[in-house]
Design a protein around this nucleic acid. Sequence first.
DNA 1: GCAATAGTGTCTGTTAGACACTATACC
DNA 2: GGTATAGTGTCTAACAGACACTATTGC
Lengths: 226, 226
Amino acid sequence: MSYPVFAVTVDLVVLTVREGELCVLLVRRGIEPYKDRWALPGGFVLADEDLADAARRELAEETGLDGPGGHLEQLATYGTPDRDPRGRVVTAAYLALLPDLPVPNAGSDAAAAAWRPITQQGLAFDHDRILADGVERARSKLEYSPLATAFCPPEFTVAALRQVYEAVWGESIDPRNFHRKATSTPGFLLPTGHSTEGEPGRPAKLFRRGDATLLNPPILRRRTGG
Amino acid sequence: MSYPVFAVTVDLVVLTVREGELCVLLVRRGIEPYKDRWALPGGFVLADEDLADAARRELAEETGLDGPGGHLEQLATYGTPDRDPRGRVVTAAYLALLPDLPVPNAGSDAAAAAWRPITQQGLAFDHDRILADGVERARSKLEYSPLATAFCPPEFTVAALRQVYEAVWGESIDPRNFHRKATSTPGFLLPTGHSTEGEPGRPAKLFRRGDATLLNPPILRRRTGG
DNA sequence: GCAATAGTGTCTGTTAGACACTATACC
DNA sequence: GGTATAGTGTCTAACAGACACTATTGC
């Protein structure tokens, strides 16, 4: 039996929160097509490689590590016939959430890599659309999963966690109500017994992520109608 | 530049509610591999075809129509290297929700097609996993979207809609509370002015789906913890 | 009338959000 | 002391769920 042949790539929407702003990891392309344009990091899937493994490999190549506190999940797959001028390329997009990292390294076929605000437009290929889908996925998943902790270092304060929610959702949250909600949701946060030092104001207790995979009750954002 | 070549398929998780039970459309494979085994309907993506178009085409081939009241969305993509003995095949799975249809037609490479309870096991390839993912997606989407109406004919009663929720979630729902909730959620249901006739009991008003894309407030299922 | 289903009203416990208040650090 | 941030208590409005009650059909 005969059938058409495709190339398969993975592209990564790597998000982090830097200085209260949701940012995405972009690379400036060093080769055609779309040379010198910003793009999502990614690359071809190898001949005997699982899709998730390819995503993890690309993530490690671009950032140095999958790191503790990180999260990686499949986002969606894009396969419009003309999406890549080199031929028929289907890409499986993955969403990664990471704590704020020092500086990303340039990959092999990327001239430079940088954190950019998620409002960045004009990316290569159909990456504007993929980025928008990734941001929307992240926003909705914060409600029902403990994934906000993936943006935080291993130990973090309730205030730091709240600032993640505020950055991702782009809205302010009452600190007192958030504190009560976050600490009373079973399995969300584990006390470490440690506290911050040297910061202004009363020291804050430090927490680790709990073992819950689904928040119950959820942390709801203000509904925008529908 | 050289890179590995892949075949790309689409597979469909087509769900409907029949006699109060959530069912999936399966085909009995007429060719190798997995000859005579039940499988999800699907097939190869054509050389110049979009993934979503391929899914719509396969759905039309298997059921006769995408039909009014139906819904089709991308589910996930599966690409483990050894998932297909014919070679490196990546499949984009789509989830379709349809009203109860008469009888599905056998496709070209399928010896027979039938509705089976979603508890069916032992499917070809990795289709057990894909089916489970599709059912889980459908269950969670009923809460926040008006997709339950995709299982109903163009005009339906509140009781019929409730039976969809009960079948998909596998739990019973208080009819009186559900009625108040469904009819008071903005944009969910549009009154038609018609009523049922010839049924036992008081006639029920008929509704169409509204134009809401997100239910606010949502229709929540009983939380199972996490 | 009786049986059956549609649809409404009411009560109760829980929760989200507003916000006053207390606690504990640095200066 | 003053300022800043952490964390708790309390009130209120909205909502989910339980369930009594009324409405409208076929028999």
